[in-house]
Amino acid sequence: MPSVMLKKNAEGKLIFYVPKKDLEEIAETVEFDSPELWGGEVLLSDGSKYYFEPQAQPDFPVTLRAKRLDSGEE
C-alpha cells in the first residue's frame, strides 16, 4: 500500500508520484472521475495499475494510500 502524492499538472492531468520509488507518472485513466465519486482503478502511462478506495473527489494535491494492482511491463 504505497503512499501516493497526487497533483494536477498544467494540462489538468493527474500526476502520480510515489516518493519511495521515485515514480513520477501521468495517470492515463481514472475509473471514477467525477466530483462526487473519484478513485477506483488508475492506469499510469508506464502501464502499471493502482487502486484507490472510491471516494468524493479530494482536493489536489493530496497524499493517498493506493493498492498496486499490476506492475505493468518491467
Binding site: M5, K7, Y17, P19, P61, V62, T63
Partner: peptide
C-alpha cells in the same frame, strides 16, 4: 523536491 511537494500539498 520533497519539501516543495510537501508545501504544495499542505499550503497549496
Amino acid at each position: 523536491n520533497y519539501i516543495a511537494r510537501h508545501m504544495e500539498e499542505k499550503y497549496k
